[in-house]
């Protein structure tokens, strides 16, 4: 499900996808990490090599499981839609869901599961509010772009949202947004991110006073 999406990413010149660099900066030294939809395990390997992170990747796709394993990672073949029952509460410092949320059916379930098994969750997704997307919709068409390369009829992306939409969901799920970065072509966007950013990267955790519900 996610493995193929990850290959659509932008490199940042040194071979690592630009959103991975942001994610890596948010992951602490020696952190316990769970990467949901880990693809070929590039991020996990980077976190292990540069942050001494210990972690597992979750993948459903056979070829990606093989690639992630061959890459030296711990990978567990599992369907994210079914939740993360194999992991106990607070098993990880950080749970990553990178460019996969928009292709999932059960968005609220996976978000709740992420903050159940992890202290923090990092979620990245293509920002539907990005201006060129809006322009294509205004011109009467579903957007097709580098980050959203599929046609409406063959896209795996069934739950697209804008940054504002995502923040509404975080509020509903009682998640506190700790950090937020928007990127376009591998560069950080600080001005009007929901209009100028094609990729959104969020770091969230359960709201302190509301921790009971998730």
């Amino acid at each position: 499900m996610s493995g193929n999406l990850k290959t659509n990413g932008n490199g940042n010149g040194n071979g690592l996808r630009s959103d991975y660099a942001v994610i890596a900066a948010w992951v602490g030294e020696g952190a316990r990490v769970l990467d949901l939809g880990c693809g070929d395990g590039t991020l996990l390997r980077h976190l292990r090599d540069h942050k001494r992170a210990f972690g597992y990747g979750i993948e459903i796709d056979d070829d990606s499981v093989l690639a992630a394993l061959s890459n030296g990672n711990n990978v567990i073949q599992s369907n994210l839609e079914e939740g993360l029952a194999v992991f106990g509460d607070a098993s990880f410092d950080c749970v990553v869901l990178s460019r996969t949320l928009q292709a999932m059916h059960h968005i609220e379930k996976i978000m709740r599961e992420m903050v159940r098994v992890g202290g923090e969750a990092i979620v990245t997704f293509p920002n539907f509010g990005y201006e060129p997307n809006r322009e294509q919709v205004a011109a009467g068409r579903m957007p097709v772009s580098k980050i959203l390369p599929h046609n409406w009829y063959d896209t795996p992306n069934i739950h697209l949202c804008t940054m504002l939409d995502f923040e509404d969901l975080c509020a509903k799920l009682e998640l506190a947004v700790l950090d937020r970065v928007a990127m376009t072509d591998g560069r950080r966007i600080d001005e009007e991110p929901n209009l100028n950013g094609e990729l959104a990267i969020y770091r969230v955790k359960r709201g302190e006073r509301l921790g009971k519900s998730a």
Partner: peptide, 13 residues
């Protein structure tokens, strides 16, 4: 599940 709870290195297919 038991192995991951112990933070043991494990891959599963």
């Amino acid at each position: 599940a038991a192995l991951t709870a112990n933070r043991t290195e494990v891959s599963y297919a």
